[in-house]
């Protein structure tokens, strides 16, 4: 089971997830401390270790809109958060898949902060309200990268294959 720790609306921008003023911080080991930095209370909970790995951020449409900054994906990945949204902005989605951040596409989900969710391969079950919602597939272009465990292992594999040719 995974708890909903943050409930957000539509068009959550990468500036909201990872403000521009922290962009000089690039390493995936360091970006998590600025995750949702302007959402001061939530950021504090993260940094103080009060959010369990696997916890869920629920949002509406067009999550990750805006900049291509990969920190927006790596900071969420650093806390092992799962995002559930109706849909995602293209570059954010690519970055998330590349880094192995778990994104779930579910446009019907109704869940409040504090609710407990359970994920099956094709559904999200809100255990608090005892309701089940279907998961929609991610765009298919990136499935091979999801399967390889991220873009770095995928490209490494391609490089080694090309050397054998």
């Amino acid at each position: 089971m995974a708890k909903v720790v943050l409930r957000l609306g539509d068009d959550v921008s990468t500036d909201a997830i990872y403000p521009g003023r922290f962009m000089a911080t690039v390493l995936p080991t360091e970006t998590p401390q600025h995750c949702f930095a302007d959402h001061v209370e939530f950021n504090k909970k993260l940094v103080q270790g009060e959010v369990a790995p696997g916890s869920v951020v629920v949002a509406g449409r067009n999550f990750g809109t805006g900049s291509s900054r990969e920190q927006a994906a790596s900071c969420l990945k650093g806390w092992d958060l799962v995002v559930v949204a109706h849909n995602y902005s293209r570059i954010f989605l690519q970055n998330a898949v590349n880094l192995g951040l778990r994104l779930v596409v579910c446009s019907a989900l109704e869940a409040d902060e504090g609710d407990e969710l359970e994920f099956t391969p094709h559904t999200v079950v809100n255990q608090t309200t005892v309701r089940t919602y279907p998961i929609e597939p991610l765009p298919r272009a990136r499935l091979a990268i999801v399967e390889a465990g991220g873009l770095i292992p995928y490209v490494r594999m391609k490089l080694l294959e090309e050397r054998l040719d």
């Binding site: 091979a144 490209v155 490089l159």
Partner: peptide, 21 residues
């Protein structure tokens, strides 16, 4: 096309974008 840093690292290595729809 705007991409993230890991996509760009892949381009630097391979000279192409992988798995683009």
């Amino acid at each position: 096309i705007g991409v993230g840093a890991t996509d760009m690292a892949a381009v630097w290595a391979l000279g192409r974008l992988v798995n683009v729809e």
